[in-house]
């Protein structure tokens, strides 16, 4: 009961913050609302008892990606506001199609019920997740670390300032 109340609270917060992200003209305000969305989503994860995911969301998304956004906006000094030159009809269309898609999937979910939880031996706790991550999913785990290394090197190479005596 309280879990449901907590879930609804964080869900409403996340939806409102997400709407504000998309609507703002000022990019810095958008980033602030993105931070709120990320925190509210982490709250939803805690309500769904996916605590590790919530912690990782706060640590990685909140403390990492959002700060990255802030830095990029500061470094390129995004003070100029790009004029949104779209007319009303194209905007309605572009908003209407995702809403239609959402309504479609929601109807699908409502119509065909959901299979109820098989009370299997797998728990959704932290320990079971760790055991599964290092046993069944070891290869994706190691591949993810190689991906992060590649991204680290790639981002530095792409974004660095060129010096005169660079080879390329």
């Amino acid at each position: 009961m309280i879990t449901l109340a907590v879930f609804i609270f964080f869900a409403v917060l996340a939806v409102v913050a997400a709407l504000l992200v998309v609507v703002q003209k000022n990019a810095m305000h958008s980033v602030l609302y993105l931070a709120f969305t990320v925190l509210a989503t982490a709250g939803v994860f805690f309500a769904l008892q996916a605590e590790y995911l919530g912690a990782i969301q706060i640590l990685v998304y909140g403390g990492g990606i959002v700060v990255l956004y802030i830095f990029v906006i500061i470094i390129v000094n995004l003070k100029e506001i790009v004029p949104e030159r779209r007319g009303l009809v194209p905007k309605l269309f572009l908003v209407g199609v995702p809403v239609l898609l959402c309504a479609e999937v929601v109807t699908l979910v409502m119509r065909t019920g959901f299979p109820s939880a098989p009370s299997g031996p797998e728990g959704s706790g932290f320990r079971e997740m760790a055991e599964m991550l290092f046993a069944s999913y070891l290869l994706p785990f190691e591949a993810a670390s190689i991906l992060l290394l590649a991204v680290l090197i790639g981002a530095i190479v792409v974004a660095r300032r060129r010096h005169i005596d660079d080879p390329d």
Binding site: L39, G54, A55, I58, V67, I70, I74, F126
Partner: peptide
């Protein structure tokens, strides 16, 4: 069960107010 990670994450949110 992941209290330590949560505290680390929450103390890294302090950069938001600063920046």
């Amino acid at each position: 069960p992941v209290g330590l990670l949560i505290i680390l994450g929450l103390s890294s949110i302090s950069v938001f107010g600063v920046i």
